[in-house]
Simulated assay, not measured.
Amino acid sequence: MTVTIMTERATPIDTLSATATFENLLQTVAEMNTPVGFKAELIRGKIIVSPFSKLRYSRRMRLLREQLQAHVPKGHFADTSPFLFRFAAAERGYGPDLYVADEAAFDEEGLHADGAALSLVGEFTSVSTKDADWNEKLDVYGLLVPVYLVVDMQGSEITCFWDPSPHGYRSRKTVSFGEPLHVPEPFDFAIDTTGF
């Protein structure tokens, strides 16, 4: 198994046992002492270390979190704190940029929460994470998470995916920054993207 740091290009930094199980890898990710400004995730069966979002992302993340918080399902909350969510069926562990999750999932012992607790995930693309956000994470979230928002920082667009199924999301809508974007149930409101 390879541990990779994602900057502008993925670079291997260590090798792990090829026989490592999903649970072992997930535990390693959760316990990693990553460099300041970086987070670790389990993507495509590899431990990937990537930088936190750039400063210019902060306002957009805050604006989106504040709007979502006003419309979260009962017992859920919106946050950007770095927590790892496990998707056991796909053998993946992601630390979303922004998420809405059931508060009860954080009453459990351990270092990672169950992906089933998520009602929404938001990923803010960067050069180093764009491929995973638009492909791998879309496939995994599309099996379970009710709503997935991809904030495409390079394209100045936001896309909402919803209606998960065994084959992925059934619906999607994309708007340019500055246009409203409707987020369906369980939220049912329009995101104001004028500040994006």
Rank of each mutant, 00 (worst) to 15 (best):
G168M: 05
S81R: 09
A132R: 00
P96S: 02
I43D: 06
T174E: 08
T193G: 08
L111R: 03
T28P: 05
A10P: 14
E136W: 01
L149I: 02
E157Q: 14
L98N: 04
T11Y: 12
Q27W: 08
A113L: 12
D131V: 12
T159K: 01
P73I: 08
V100W: 05
H182V: 11
Q69H: 08
A30P: 02
P73W: 01
L143Q: 14
H112M: 06
S128C: 05
P35T: 10
I158Q: 00
Q27A: 06
D139H: 11
I5F: 09
F83S: 11
R86Q: 12
V100L: 08
L120R: 03
Q154E: 15
F83C: 08
L16Y: 08
V140C: 06
T15E: 15
A132D: 06
M32R: 05
D133P: 11
T7H: 12
L98D: 04
T15V: 14
F177A: 06
F77W: 02
T34P: 02
I158F: 07
L55R: 12
A30S: 13
G93P: 00
S126P: 07
R86M: 03
Q27H: 12
R9Y: 14
V121I: 10
A104R: 13
V29E: 13
F177T: 08
L138F: 08
V36K: 11
D131M: 04
T21Y: 10
L149Q: 06
T2H: 14
T4Y: 09
T21G: 07
G37H: 02
V29G: 07
S17D: 15
S17I: 03
P166F: 14
T11W: 05
S119Y: 00
V151D: 10
C160F: 06
S176N: 13
T129Y: 01
A90G: 01
L55K: 14
D79L: 01
P186I: 15
V127D: 14
F87C: 10
R9L: 11
E31F: 00
L144F: 01
E185G: 14
F196Q: 07
E123G: 03
T4F: 08
T174K: 07
T80V: 13
G115H: 04
S156E: 15
F106Y: 03
F22G: 06
R9E: 15
T28R: 13
R60Q: 09
I48S: 05
L64Q: 05
S126F: 03
E136I: 07
R56S: 15
F85E: 04
T80F: 00
V100A: 09
D14I: 05
K130I: 05
F187A: 00
N135H: 13
H112Y: 14
F196S: 12
L98C: 04
